[in-house]
């Protein structure tokens, strides 16, 4: 199509308001189409990795014989989702207790209230959250405070003498819990 500024039709806006309106709407539509075409890949780039489920993987936290029966100790491991630039932020902690010979329990650090890291107090055998004072008994059930449910656990297994935890997302980012 030839575009000519002197085209009679172009100057006839006043006589032909319907055409004007149509072209204005077309302009908006084409503009929106351009924005969507350019914007969709960007939105996809930002959103797609987020909607993907976290890859769970077994991670070793040390030889089983380093854990004393009855003791609750803090372990930390590199999360499998860490990248070369993640640094110490890629670490995850857990409270691990050896309850029997080959029997281990591992608690998620994050309080079920707002996610602050809970501390283990060995004498009263309580987990205490320093933020809003939630307290959990040694089995992770709620003892006091605003915590709505028990401390979440990691799955634990012992493979060739190594205690292994199954990495997991933060409890509140999971749809399954």
């Amino acid at each position: 199509m030839k575009i000519d500024d002197n085209n009679e039709a172009c100057r006839s806006g006043e006589e032909n308001p319907g055409r004007r309106r149509f072209l204005a709407r077309l302009g908006v539509a084409v503009g929106s189409l351009i924005a969507i075409m350019a914007g969709l890949p960007v939105i996809g780039y930002i959103l797609l990795p987020v909607s993907r489920k976290m890859h769970r993987q077994w991670v070793s936290v040390g030889p089983a014989d380093r854990f004393t029966v009855g003791d609750t100790v803090l372990v930390s491991f590199e999360n499998p989702s860490a990248r070369p630039w993640t640094g110490v932020s890629g670490k995850t902690g857990a409270w691990v207790r050896r309850v029997g010979d080959g029997n281990f329990i591992a608690f998620v650090l994050n309080c079920s209230h707002l996610g602050c890291p809970v501390r283990w107090e060995a004498s009263p055998k309580l987990f205490i959250c320093p933020c809003h004072g939630s307290v959990y008994y040694e089995d992770g059930t709620v003892a006091a405070g605003p915590a709505p449910f028990s401390l979440q656990r990691f799955r634990v297994r012992v493979r060739s003498g190594q205690v292994e935890l199954e990495s997991r997302p933060l409890p509140f980012t999971e749809t399954t819990t």
Partner: peptide, 11 residues
């Protein structure tokens, strides 16, 4: 999930 950029704080 969106705010953290995944299931755990990190990368």
């Amino acid at each position: 999930h969106f705010i953290i950029g995944g299931g755990v704080v990190g990368s």
